[in-house]
Design a binder for these strands. Structure first.
Lengths: 200, 200, 200, 200
DNA sequence: GATGAATGAGACTTCATTCAT
DNA sequence: AATGAATGAAGTCTCATTCAT
């Protein structure tokens, strides 16, 4: 009885439009009107599905985390060993090519920027970052142990994540970074760092 | 003969107020009125000294570059050798403590964000990044040569700069990074990377 | 033969929800969506049972008049004599306690306010006021005659009704009126006014 | 130096436009746009002089109190004796004619209505009502004493004020009250109440 | 140089109402 | 009868910018 709900699909449609608009025109350009237009919907409808604009960003943040997770799982399925799993994670978060969404990088940077002003968003953003840090630490730890390298896995994870975030930033706002080279470069550096003295 | 011009001082006053406002409330909060209030001036006066808001950001970008340059020169004066100069550069851009301005970090992130929308700003932002990249490459090159390490100095500079930018981002929007540990951590990593096989 | 109509019950349900919402959040808060939520119905259904929002107010006006009438009848049944009937009427419209609905007072004030904007509502509101005035005049007249007081019953009715409306207003928007004292106070004043010279 | 401020005059202009709009179209019609149009100003300018719409109502409330006070003082100057002062107060708040502003009545009613939703406004509204109550009590007290009438001046003041408020309400929303007769009627009633037994 | 009034566009949001199901 | 999606107009407010003084 009654009209069937299409809320889930519509919300995804709105979030995806936000992703595209943000990648194209930054956060300033991502007005509710602009998002509505990109999604082919009326501005009023966006408020039927989200309480306010901030909620759309929250949903986008979840969406981005989901995209990264999905990509990681797809890539991890093909790799074996501690090194393989670590590289799969890095490729999932940094590499271009199959399954990558360039818009996601820009959107992620904008959300990070907006997180300062929006307290609730900041809390969620920080949680995602923390989660990534934990994942990375867990992946680095066995590698370090196997190589008998005396390095703090957590500290290395922070630096690695910073590098990834920095690549995002530079790739979004400048042309000094070749997107395709980021992942190989980081993999090389990590291998060198971790394995550098393995034969000592 | 009229009153003496105080334009230079006023411009600096405005730029510095922008720096503080941006660090506190992000780009969204940095309205012309808010900047004027922070500077203790009227909003109209800001447009007397700058054509438009974007010009204030341009000036702030220059100001930030100047701050970093000044800090670098101060630190470099005390260091000797290729390693010393490289570490001085890193400390100038990343370390806390003497001469560091925490607000500059946040403002830099916001300017990077705004650069996407504002084409002219993006060009200048990119130029600054390029300049830093060149400086860093020039500092890394002799070190790599001395250690007889076969690494592309430019590629290493990109990764290093990305790490620095990423630290900025993480420090501004989250609490997962301890600001004090960023510079030592990066120095350690670099030494390991560059010097790792120096004894081979 | 189709399902039996529940229109009457639904309309009452909607009107009663409006009464509660209005008492709680004023006319501003009484959006169609808010009323629907309070009633546990969908907003669309409200327009199935009422042509538009104004019609709900019309129905609420009728409902409020019905409530007062019912209360009056209940109270009048226990009283005898001209004085008794007059006091029953006053208690029905002003007294707290048994059968009184505090929400009705606030809702009545809001409807009076809205009546200015909504022409059709104003006509009905005015009709209700006129009816009350007539009732009050008819009740005052025999009392005045019996006391051989030379007062215009209609003029006295207007003032009395104004006092009642004023009590509503003050009780709704301020705390300067003790709701429980309004009816006794008005009764006392009336007795004094009407009976003041009865022994002349 | 700099442009001279016309803020006081502009604020008054805005408040007065609000008074007129409210009297004509009620609170619903008193949108910021409508007020701006009535005042012949842009909507943006209203927010230059008032933080938000609610502040305009606050100022209007003050303005209305000022109007009543001014009228009272003008009328009181011509009257002598306890009775004279009491009647001057009543005429100031209720009578039509010289110095009376019919719009003020309607605006006062709307502000009372809006006070329920707006907590800060309610506090001020209540303060004004309380002040009037105190004034009225102070005026009634000597009259009651002189007549050796055993009546509680405060209770009588509440009822009198309620009657006045009720007249406002009825005059604003209905046509059952002849505005010109309100003040004489109330004076007559008061004289009867207070003086009824003076010759006992 | 400096102030503060003034504007107009555009931001987010709410809401009564309509319509497909 | 009932739901919930959908719309479009209108609401309040912010803001970069211009202009009179």
């Amino acid at each position: 009885m009654g009209r069937p709900s299409n809320a889930v699909q519509r919300r995804l449609q709105i979030v995806d439009a936000t992703l595209r608009v943000m990648a194209r025109t930054g956060f300033d350009g991502a007005s509710v009107q602009a998002i509505a237009k990109e999604a082919g919907l009326s501005a009023g409808l966006l408020h039927h599905h989200f309480d306010n604009k901030s909620q759309i960003l929250h949903a986008l943040l979840d969406h981005l985390e989901g995209l990264a997770r999905a990509r990681h799982e797809a890539l991890a399925a093909r790799r074996r060993g501690d090194w393989g799993r670590l590289e799969a994670w890095i490729d999932a978060h940094l590499a271009v090519g199959e399954g990558a969404r360039p818009e996601a990088t820009a959107a992620w940077v904008w959300i990070g920027a907006q997180a300062l002003k929006d307290e609730a968003l900041r809390a969620r953003y920080q949680a995602v970052v923390q989660r990534r840090l934990d994942e990375l630490t867990a992946l680095l730890d066995p590698v370090l142990r196997a190589q008998e390298v005396r390095l703090d896995a957590h500290a290395l994870a922070v630096t690695t994540l910073a590098t990834i975030e920095g690549y995002y930033q530079l790739a979004t706002s400048t042309a000094v970074v070749d997107p395709g080279s980021a992942a190989p470069q980081l993999r090389r550096w990590l291998r060198r760092t971790v394995g550098g003295q393995r034969r000592r």
